[in-house]
Amino acid sequence: MELEELQPAFDRKVECIYCKNKFTTKKLRAQFVKVTEYDTDFRPQYESDHANPLFYNIFVCPECGFSFSEDFTKTFAPGTKKQIEEKIASKWTKHDYSGERTIIDALNTYKLAGYCATLKKEKHITTAGIYMRLAWLYRQKKDDEQEIRFLKLARKEYLESYSTEDFKGTQVTEIRLLYLTGELSVRIGDMATATKYFSMVIEKQKQAVETKLVEMARERWQEIRDRQTAK
């Protein structure tokens, strides 16, 4: 009897945080995921398009359509469940995202999650992460217009997160948030904001643990200055 070949994706059980329905979704085995390099906004580039864990970050409940990631909080603000019922669950045509996903499937799941995050009044830092990953997927598709659209939305949410401080207690540090705001500003062509936020990162270098981020911010700041003086 031959041993069955290990597949990159396996089934994991998830419970919908909205309707409590239990369903399965795919997750990739770590040994199949190989990052070749990172872009300056931390987008990981993978050795294989077929082993891209970004495709599976979002859980889509096949029963109610509520879509979420592990970063979503379990609690719902007053009135938000009613909004989700009216705008998502009552209109949902059962669709199963439990199999292996294409990039189009992945884009659809993130868009659903972005809508759900907005209705749920999820933390800005979480919503920003969804939009950022949408931008990354569009970059993979070489769709510049859509990439810019979602980078702008991500930056808006990062700015909100910084002003409300809802990033505190998450994996995103203040320095990382400031750096990302600067980096996304460069990518959408807003050099004034980029310079401001990179400068804020550099100013924090004495208390920074993430020295690599300070170095990256300094390099990006210098690139902007060089570009401006060359004009």
Rank of each mutant, 00 (worst) to 15 (best):
K120I: 12
R101D: 01
E100N: 08
T195P: 07
H124K: 13
G182Y: 05
K168V: 14
R101N: 12
I103F: 08
D105L: 07
Y110E: 01
L178R: 03
K152Q: 09
F167R: 04
T102K: 01
K142F: 15
D144G: 05
Q146R: 10
G129V: 03
I125C: 10
E165D: 13
L178Q: 03
T195I: 04
S161K: 13
A154M: 12
Y179H: 08
Q171P: 08
E165S: 15
H124W: 15
M132Y: 03
E100K: 13
S98F: 13
Y158N: 15
K120Y: 14
T181K: 00
M132W: 08
L184I: 11
Y97W: 09
G182N: 01
E100R: 05
S163W: 02
A192H: 05
D166T: 09
G129F: 05
M132Q: 13
R101T: 01
L119M: 11
R155I: 00
D166M: 07
L153S: 02
R139D: 11
D96Q: 11
Y197F: 11
D143Y: 08
I175N: 02
T195N: 02
L119R: 05
I125W: 10
E145I: 14
R155G: 07
K142V: 09
K120C: 14
S185N: 07
L177P: 06
T173W: 15
N108Q: 07
R101V: 12
K156T: 04
D143F: 10
D166W: 10
S98Q: 10
L134T: 00
E100H: 05
D96W: 14
M132I: 00
D144Y: 05
L137A: 03
Y97M: 14
G182I: 03
I104C: 01
Y179M: 06
D166G: 12
K142P: 11
T109D: 06
L151V: 09
R101F: 06
W136L: 05
Y162H: 04
D190I: 10
N108F: 01
I103A: 07
S161E: 14
V186Y: 04
D144N: 12
K142D: 06
Y158F: 15
K121D: 05
Y158L: 15
S161R: 12
F167S: 03
E147N: 08
E160D: 15
Y131A: 03
H124A: 15
I104A: 12
G114A: 09
K196Y: 10
S199F: 04
K142S: 15
A135W: 07
W136S: 08
E183Q: 08
E147P: 12
I188L: 03
L159F: 14
E122R: 02
E160L: 06
D190A: 01
K196F: 09
T164I: 07
H95Q: 15
T109K: 04
E174S: 04
Y131K: 00
R139A: 09
E165G: 02
K123M: 13
H124C: 15
Q140H: 08
L178K: 10
L151Y: 14
D144E: 14
W136K: 02
E160S: 10
A194Q: 01
A135C: 10
E160M: 05
Y115R: 09
R155E: 07
T164M: 08
K141P: 00
V186Q: 12
D166C: 09
D105S: 06
E147M: 12
N108S: 07
E160K: 03
H95L: 14
G189V: 01
L153Y: 03
S185R: 04
K111L: 11
G114L: 04
R155M: 11
